[in-house]
Design a protein around this nucleic acid. Structure first.
Lengths: 209, 209
DNA sequence: GTGCGAATCGTCCTTTTGGACGATGCCGTC
DNA sequence: GACGGCATCGTCCAAAAGGACGATTCGCAC
């Protein structure tokens, strides 16, 4: 019998997961909690085999990645599966770095969830097919990383500042700003400031406001 | 007995809603469907009192707002409640314009859902408290409100499209796009596209990606 | 110490954007 | 039926942004 803890702030999603695993004879949901801190507590208290955890929690400072890290640091730590709506690079990276053994999407078919839980309980890794594909793409495609100065420029641009204003803010010439922007465009494969901001947000390079 | 149709592309959410309404004696879920087109079909076939519908469907061209519009155009049309993750002005506006009688958030407590369904069945409007608050704020401070067309333009601009591209996307001339942008700038008190996007995000006019 | 990326600054030129005037048709309100 | 807001289209011009060449200096890695 696999002991499972479910952590998600949406009551509807928790109800759905309970219903789903309720019909699986070999999976027992021993706790369902609405927040990351409660998840860590439950992981200590219930001694589960697997924790299924959301990444985003509204109105919480702790993220799912933080909670994952803390759970994986426990003695006899359970495996953690991350379950989220988004498949952004930044999110996946955060989850993997925190020690998750799987990354699942909320719109996945139910059987993907149950097989993933069983795989995780057996100590194996479990990625949603979509995510696996994306990771492979990522490996194939060269990693884009902006320098800290470039990010600084892009943040000001995202805030709506003009090249002249950015130059004044950073005490450099407008030429320099344009030069940074040209590099940013080339790295992100775009050709305008709005497209750059949009691409950077999508990839988690800029704060998601 | 309230006949309810549930439309959401996440199997987990559908399972959760089924479990939730399963324990309500006066609500009968007569169909649960994964897409907007199926929702319209079910609304015709099952003759429900209320349709509970997601706004965003992955990998579909039809949006929840489109489906809502089509359902409300039926004979003996059921009431439509929109259920979504986001509370941006653009989404709310789209839903209301499409004829939704309520707007609910997925992280709402279950009782909000059931009371909203009962209210909708009785022909009343039902808004999540968060949304109601936002609408009231909007009424009190009506200083900035973009027209739906303007929001549409701004969304494309935020996605990094140029004026020419936006014009092509919306089947209008570039002059028209520039005219919309000029109005947007004046309303938001800015003078560039990036500043407009930034201001609109800050005020919740655009979704906080 | 050679090479490389980063940060800085230049010029010249083209494209895009924004501002300042227009104009028309439609719809809803008063 | 007049008025205002919205959406549509136009021209002309100035400013901003972007592309295509440059260039130097400074670290840091090999």
């Amino acid at each position: 019998m696999i002991r499972l803890v479910v952590a998600d702030d949406h009551p509807i999603v928790r109800a759905g997961l309970l219903a789903l695993f309720g019909s699986e004879p070999d999976i027992d949901v021993v706790a369902d909690v609405p927040g990351p801190d409660e998840a860590v507590a439950a992981a200590q208290r219930e001694n589960p085999d697997v924790v299924l955890m959301d990444l985003q929690f509204r109105a919480r400072t702790t993220t799912g990645a933080d909670a994952t890290r803390r759970i994986r640091a426990l003695d006899a730590a359970p495996y953690v599966l991350v379950l989220t709506n988004y498949d952004s690079d930044a999110d996946i990276l955060a989850a993997v770095e925190a020690g998750a053994s799987g990354y699942l999407l909320k719109d996945a078919p139910p059987h993907e969830l149950t097989t993933a839980v069983r795989a995780a309980a057996a100590g194996e890794s479990a990625l949603a097919p979509v995510i696996a594909t994306r990771l492979l793409d990522r490996m194939r495609a060269p990693q884009v990383s902006l320098s800290s100065r470039e990010i600084q420029v892009l943040e000001l641009v995202a805030a709506g500042r003009s090249n002249t204003e950015v130059a004044a803010d950073l005490f450099v010439s407008e030429t320099t700003v344009k030069s940074h922007l040209a590099h940013i465009y080339s790295k992100l494969d775009v050709s305008s400031r709005t497209a750059a901001v949009s691409a950077a947000r999508r990839r988690g390079i800029l704060r998601q406001v």
